[in-house]
Structure formats: structure tokens, C-alpha cells
Design a protein around this nucleic acid. Structure first.
Lengths: 196, 196
DNA sequence: CACTATACCAAACAACTGTTTGTTTTTGGA
DNA sequence: TCCAAAAACAAACAGTTGTTTGGTATAGTG
């Protein structure tokens, strides 16, 4: 009877699924989801378009997989910074630096998370938003720790800082200020009193 | 001989070009440029797809027209705020409020400017970027006036604030905080010393 | 070694895309 | 009233899109 329950599918070692995900992540982050065709992805993975549908039911499901991996990688990059002790402001700066590094240079997966608007893909928008929210709660911890004046709105502070970080994808060009430098300057603008 | 130079084309009063632009602005801001078809726009304007090509040589040229009008409207909304006298911080707050109101609620044209990434439309990317830069110089004036500590990097301050404002399109939902309230809170976070 | 699920190929499908071409209607100025 | 320009129609084009279907090789298990 136990054999009848042997439903589990043993994956094969020559599986090209990782190749598909890598290619999709690269294209989605370079050209955007809407401008990427299944043929682009299949070609880069060295296979035929139809073969992708063995692994994913639709283009949107493929996006969800890439997006989820992207969130995972951003968290993976940020968590160590979040765990470090000492000054909460220094910790926030490290978190921002890790966040920036992930979405500007390190990972095509992470870039997809910032670049693709959930609303653009209605079929899976709710799932993408849920994934993004999940990370934002992680980020919010770095703000929760800050010693701030009593009546400071930490929610708005989170939206402001995260917005500034994410929008950097629009204007950032490699070779100029590094993510670390940018993170430092951004946090300093919030920390230090601008009004002399 | 003078008649031979009568090249000027007298436009007709039943011209539906404004309808086309309005429809395009609405679709581009709702669904994005890539997800909007010429048939969508033509249908909303009450005409056939091919007829659009009497007014615009391509879909991209239509985008440029909408984008330019968007920049014009944002500037139109921000300029009065920029002209007001008194406290530079209050002026910055007004500028931010006007900027937010334009791109969050007032104008579909303005929303296109923030929503559409120039890089997504290579054929006209340079022109879109130039238009956006033109406005950003306007915005920068509100920052140039601020009385800041000597060694403050106003360029980074501009990038940070503008990023925070523009990204709000991602999370803003009408009915909650108004653009005015958001602008006030954002500016206050920069102005007031967060470190007690 | 046999056999089964895995992973892919090969080829097509219908729908949709931006655009072109030739023709027709309509408008405003002379 | 006449007429050239303006503005739109009607119909098609070639290419691309996501996806489906049926067949096939192959790797790992018993």
C-alpha cells in the first residue's frame, strides 16, 4: 500500500530549471516582464519555447518563481546586517547598503522584485505583493530599533527611505557612488539635523 | 510667389487629437506603455487603429507627446509653489505637495512621466530622459534655496527626496493620507533632527 | 536489464501586435 | 460654390505572442 503513495517525483540531475530561472531573471530585470518573450528565455536556456511549460504553467507563474527567489536573496543579503549589534543607526546604514547592493549590482533576481510592478501582472499581483510585503516587514525592523523622538511616524519613515532606495534603480549608474556610499549619505540626511 | 510658401496646415476644429492624447495618457498610466495597444487607444478615442498614424508616426512618438505634456503639467503644478516667498522649508513642502498631487491623483499625463521607464522604450529613451531632466532641474531649485549645513550634499538630497516622492505611486491608495499630508511628513523627517 | 516518470523536442495554433496602403468623407478658406 | 488640404475609414499585411499537443529520448530505480 505504501508504494501506492509513492507520488513523489524524483527530479533528474540534468534538470535545466535553474538555467530557465537564471535566464528569466536576467531578461525580466533587463527588459522588463512585458518586453520579455518566452522565446527569449527559452533561447538563452538552450531549449525550445514549449519546453518551458513542463516547468511552469504560464509566463506569470515563471515570474512568481523568479520574484520569490528575488525576495529570498534580498532577505539573505539584509539579514546579516540586521543581526549585527551596536548602534541602531549603523545597523540601518548596513541594511540599506545591503539592500542597495542587491538591487543595483548583485542579483538579477533582486532587481526583478523592484522593477516589476505587481499591478502590471493582474493574474498574480496579489502573490507578488504578498512577497514584497514579507520583505518590507524585515526592513521595518531596522527602523523599529532606532531611538527617535517620541512622536515620529516610523511608517512614513519606512516608506520614505525604502522609496528613495528603490527609486535609485532609475538613476544609478555603476562606476559612480557605490551602494555603501549612497547608503551612508541617505541615512546621514535622516540622522543629522539639516536645520543648523 | 507668396502663395507658394503657404505651407502652413490649417488644423480643423473637429480634430480628435486631444481625444487620442487623453486616451493614450489614461491607458499608459493605467496599464503601462507596453501593455497598451494602439487598438486600445483608437477604440477609446472612437476611431480605427490606422487613423492614429495620421497624427503620429509610431506608438513611440505618441508616447513622447504624452510624456511631454505630462512634464508640462507637473511643472505647471509645481511652479506656483516654487514662486511663493517666505520660508524655504515651507516652499519645499509646497513643491512636494504639488508634485505628489500631480502624480498621484490629478493628471494621467503626469503619472505617465513617473510610470514609464525611458529605458523600456529605446527608440525614444534619450528624449524622454531629457524631458524628465528638464523637470528635475525645476525641482532642484526648491532644494538650492534651503539653508543647510555647509557640507550637505544637495544632489543626494534631491535624489533621495524625489525618489521617495516618485516611489509613492507604488504604494499610495487614495482615501488615506492626502498628498499634502504626505509632503508635510516627508519634509519634516528631513528638516527635524531625528536623533534626539 | 526492464520500465517508468522525467524532461524535452517538433510543430503547429489562434490571437494579437504595430503598421501600411488606397480610398473616402469632411472642413474651412478663396 | 469650388476645391485643396485635413482627417479619418476599410482592409489588409507580416511578424510576434503565449500556449497546446503528441511524440521521443534519457536518466534513475527496482
Amino acid at each position: 500500500m505504501a508504494a501506492a503513495v509513492r507520488t513523489a517525483a524524483a527530479p533528474r540531475s540534468d534538470n535545466r530549471l535553474p538555467l530557465i530561472l537564471d535566464a528569466a531573471a536576467r531578461f525580466f530585470s533587463d527588459k522588463g516582464f512585458g518586453y520579455t518573450s518566452m522565446r527569449d528565455i527559452a533561447g538563452a536556456a538552450g531549449m525550445l519555447p514549449g519546453s518551458l511549460y513542463y516547468h511552469f504553467a504560464s509566463k506569470e507563474e515563471l515570474l512568481v518563481a523568479v520574484y520569490a527567489e528575488g525576495v529570498r536573496r534580498i532577505k539573505e543579503a539584509v539579514m546579516p546586517a540586521l543581526a549585527q549589534g551596536g548602534d541602531p543607526w549603523a545597523r540601518l546604514e548596513s541594511v540599506c547598503a545591503a539592500h542597495l547592493a542587491a538591487l543595483l549590482v548583485d542579483s538579477a533576481y533582486a532587481q526583478v522584485v523592484i522593477r516589476v510592478r505587481p499591478d502590471d501582472v493582474p493574474e498574480v499581483a496579489a502573490r507578488l505583493t504578498a512577497l514584497r510585503d514579507e520583505y518590507e516587514r524585515t526592513f521595518a525592523q531596522a527602523i523599529a530599533d532606532l531611538p527617535l523622538p517620541p512622536r515620529t511616524d516610523r511608517r512614513v519613515l519606512k516608506l520614505m527611505l525604502l522609496g528613495a532606495l528603490n527609486w535609485s534603480q532609475t538613476w544609478y549608474r555603476s562606476g559612480r557612488d557605490s551602494p555603501q556610499v549612497l547608503a551612508r549619505r541617505f541615512v546621514r540626511l535622516l540622522r543629522d539635523p539639516l536645520e543648523a
